[in-house]
Write a protein that binds this DNA or RNA. Structure first.
Length: 491
RNA sequence: GGCGACGUGGCCGAGCGGACUAAGGCGGGGGACUGCAAAUCCCCUUAUCGGCGGUUCGAAUCCGCCCGUCGCCUCCA
């Protein structure tokens, strides 16, 4: 089965063929560590994390690199504000980032380089550009000469001429051309600085990814990814630098995820309309965020709202429930017989085929999820029959078990969902402890109440039984009576 | 101003020339099951795909114009 993905460079969906199969080299632009990550960052991270898992599943040997920008204006400004060094800020938010990634199950990349550990490599790139006549020094700064690179604009589909007409580019006396961009910035007093052939300074933003890719992946990679907002100028500038040096295609496929919006407007720090990942996962199981992201095609905009989180949570609980229900079914009276080539197996086969077909066509996760929920419905039918009859046929149970386990394996492995089934209690417990230390539930006490209620129901004391159920609900515990007994969960 | 994307049922969201009598999720209504709920299932809500014109045997899907929304052009996932 061939994989097809949309390539920003060509503007088309193309068949994906790595340069040196089965190896696949991927690089995505990571975060600038000056504050906590928000849902916009989260989306990009989740999209590429899932895509990487899918590639691995297809049998590719993926080498995945994702960087940290740990020195730039925003970090420096924040450091000044707090009267600490920029490294303190960077380290703090790298730690925070790792906490977030663990929570939302984004696996670490194979290499996670930091700019400050690649200063020499960056200087080397700049020097090569100067030697080749693509860059020039001006009073301690170094700029890339955009006009010297004739293919400039090929990724973002714009020409230098057009851009000069629009001319919102900041004029600088040091630049020979307003479109030129900084590769190296002479440092001002009190700013982090490194020695260079052009004096003390620090790297401009666009060079770091080139230097890190050259070092960790080579001169040409298979896939370069990032948010749509990086297409111009960042990725365009990367191409200019890398290809000016090597004369080879820098990345063969460029993948860009759509942005997260709030009420239709881009989620961003500057607009102040952002929601941090920490806020998300203290209120919801992190899987709900992953599912929310996967429910929209990666190239479409995703409009975030808390209502949507609620909707997604219900869908998530249905998915999770279909797998957890296996435990309930196992407790039923099992009766010999039932359909022998069980129809569920056929459904499972259909699912597996269509699920991977959907992902292979420009990574269509919403369509893949449609297939998931079709299977969930099939499982529900079996459950419905069993619960209605108060017993289950042997073949039903066996088929349910195998299908549920297979589905769970796929959800875990590729979508990164349901990695710890029955995780909800644990996760929420941890959160609850952090938030309100005194308010941790005593499970044995809840179980006791449930037992008392079961007795009451046996005696047909329904008023008492309902009272217990209602009161438990008020303190956040929901009861569900099943033929296999009563189960409860926190809400 | 320049470049680009999008507009699908109550909401979200796939589909991007013929298996579309348009996937899936969420919500609402009815029913089965249940002491009652919950969970699950079944049925309905539920679609001529922003508007107009064109290309085609055939268009949600291609082209043009218009309206609306958003993104990039400055740091941004």
């Amino acid at each position: 089965m061939s994989l097809r993905i949309y390539n920003t460079l060509s503007g088309k969906v193309e068949e994906f063929v790595p340069a040196d199969p089965p190896k696949v080299k991927i690089y995505t632009c990571g975060v600038t560590v000056y504050d906590d990550s928000h849902v916009g960052h989260g989306r990009s991270l989740i999209v590429f994390d899932t895509f990487r898992r899918f590639l691995e599943h297809l049998g590719y040997e993926v080498k995945f690199v994702r960087n940290f920008t740990d020195v730039d204006d925003k970090i420096i400004n924040r450091a000044k504000k707090e009267c600490v060094s920029f490294m303190t800020i960077a380290n703090r938010y790298i730690a925070s980032y790792y906490k977030d990634m663990e929570a939302i199950r984004v696996r670490p990349a194979d290499v996670e380089p930091r700019v400050t550990e690649h200063i020499q490599e960056i200087i080397d790139v700049i020097q090569r550009l100067i030697e080749k006549g693509f860059a020039y020094e001006a009073d301690g700064d170094v700029y890339f000469s955009v006009k010297a690179f004739k293919e400039y604009g090929k990724l973002s589909k714009r020409s230098p001429e057009e851009m000069e007409a629009g001319a919102r580019v900041e004029p600088s006396e040091k630049k020979r051309d307003p479109l030129d961009f900084a590769l190296w910035k002479a440092s001002k007093a009190g700013e982090p600085a490194w020695d260079s052939p052009w004096g003390k300074g620090r790297p401009g933003w666009h060079t770091e990814c080139v230097a890190m890719i050259f070092k960790h992946l080579g001169e040409s990679i298979d896939i370069h990814g990032g948010g749509l907002d990086l297409v111009f100028p960042h990725h365009e500038n990367e191409i200019a630098q890398a290809e000016a040096i090597t004369g080879k295609p820098f990345a063969r496929y460029w993948m860009h995820n759509g942005l997260v919006t709030v009420g239709g407007q881009k989620m961003s720090k500057s607009l102040g309309n952002y929601v941090t990942l920490k806020e998300i996962y203290t209120k919801y199981h992190p899987d709900v965020l992953r599912l929310l992201v996967l429910f929209t095609h990666y190239r479409s905009p995703l409009d975030f709202s808390w209502d949507k989180m609620e909707e997604t949570k219900r869908a998530y609980e249905r998915l999770k429930g279909s797998i957890e229900d296996l435990d309930l079914l196992k407790k039923l009276k099992v009766e010999a017989g039932g359909e022998t080539p069980h129809p569920l197996y056929e459904k499972l086969k259909d699912f597996e085929t269509s699920f991977f077909e959907a992902l292979s066509e420009d990574f269509n996760t919403p369509e893949a999820l449609a297939k998931v929920f079709a299977l969930v419905s099939e499982l529900g039918k079996v459950k419905n029959r069993a619960f209605s009859e108060g017993k289950i046929y042997e073949t039903d149970l066996k088929a349910y078990e195998e299908v549920a386990e297979s589905l769970l394996k796929t959800m875990k492995g590729i979508f990164g969902l349901l990695e710890d089934l029955k995780p909800e209690c644990e996760v929420q417990e941890v959160v609850a402890k952090e938030l309100e230390p005194g308010k941790v539930l005593d499970e044995t006490l809840v179980n006791l109440l449930v037992e008392v209620r079961t007795l009451a129901r046996k005696e047909k004391q329904y008023k008492i039984a309902d009272f217990i159920r209602d009161r438990l609900k008020e303190i956040g515990i929901e009861l569900e009576d099943t033929p296999s007994g009563t189960k409860w969960k926190r809400v």
